[in-house]
């Protein structure tokens, strides 16, 4: 019994991986500082307020991370126009027949855990699968909600024009109360998403053994040999035979 032959394929380019990990850091920092801002811990201190700025620092970290999160997101959107086919915005286009048949497949096999009678390797997505695509689209919208509500809350105390661009968001919801609530709920969506996302990455890595986890570090995934074009295969075989001659 032998394993199937796999080929190493470059899937996640460096900007995509940088985006991913910067995003991870930002979400962690933003959530932690966000929790602190929403419900600050009791600080036992005898210092005068003049000599303390601890909560101001927490807020500064939150705002700084928010800017990084925002510009990181913009760079990712830019990369979806110049990056490879796995990073392209086309990969995230949800309204194609292929997307929906793959969606049904993933739902059946990976979410509801049915077994397929005949294994079709074509159903294994090389980049994102369709369920993942939809979850990232949803998360993108939630990220936009966070950005819009966050900058809206920040706008009144900001000196820069950029956060002020979002000042119109607050009146839409009648005031800061609702905006703050939405901002807080959006953070919870990120946390819940992260739980599922991390688990599913482990799940796919464990079941399919294609380097799902490590792909976000090195950028490589492993794809079955017979999915590559014949010509490429022949070329490779020739190269191999020459090498070992």
């Amino acid at each position: 019994m032998e394993t199937r032959n796999f080929k190493r394929v470059f899937v996640w380019e460096l900007p995509v991986r940088i985006f991913h990990w910067v995003n991870v850091l930002c979400v962690i920092v933003l959530s932690l500082s966000g929790f602190l801002i929403a419900n600050p811990p009791a600080l036992i201190s005898s210092a005068e307020a003049t000599n303390l700025h601890s909560f101001g620092i927490v807020r500064f970290i939150h705002f700084a991370a928010a800017y990084i999160f925002f510009f990181n997101m913009i760079l990712r959107v830019y990369w979806s126009f110049v990056g490879n086919k796995f990073a392209s915005w086309r990969a995230f286009w949800p309204f194609s027949k292929k997307t929906w048949s793959n969606f049904k497949h993933v739902l059946k096999i990976d979410v509801l855990l049915f077994n397929e009678k005949v294994h079709d390797e074509k159903n294994i997505s090389i980049g994102h699968n369709s369920v993942a695509i939809l979850s990232y689209l949803l998360l993108f919208i939630v990220a936009l909600v966070s950005v819009f509500t966050g900058f809206a809350l920040y706008a009144d105390t900001a000196n820069w024009w950029l956060p002020k661009l979002f000042a119109w968001v607050t009146p839409l919801f009648g005031g800061d109360f609702m905006v703050r609530s939405i901002h807080h709920i959006a953070m919870w969506v990120f946390i819940l998403f992260t739980l599922v996302h991390v688990y599913l990455v482990f799940y796919h890595d464990w079941l399919e053994g294609r380097g799902e986890v490590s792909s976000m570090f090195g950028g490589y995934k492993f794809v079955q040999e017979d999915r590559l074009r014949k010509a490429a295969k022949a070329e490779e075989a020739e190269e191999k035979s020459n090498k070992y001659k």
Partner: peptide, 29 residues
């Protein structure tokens, strides 16, 4: 402002004009 309130009086949060604000920034609650 956008909600029809006079900017001169409703342009700032109570929080941002509060004399206890330094305690907030210091984390003293």
């Amino acid at each position: 402002d956008r909600l029809g309130r006079p900017k001169a009086f409703y342009g700032k949060r109570v929080h941002d004009t509060c004399y206890r604000r330094p305690y907030y920034d210091a984390g003293l609650f």
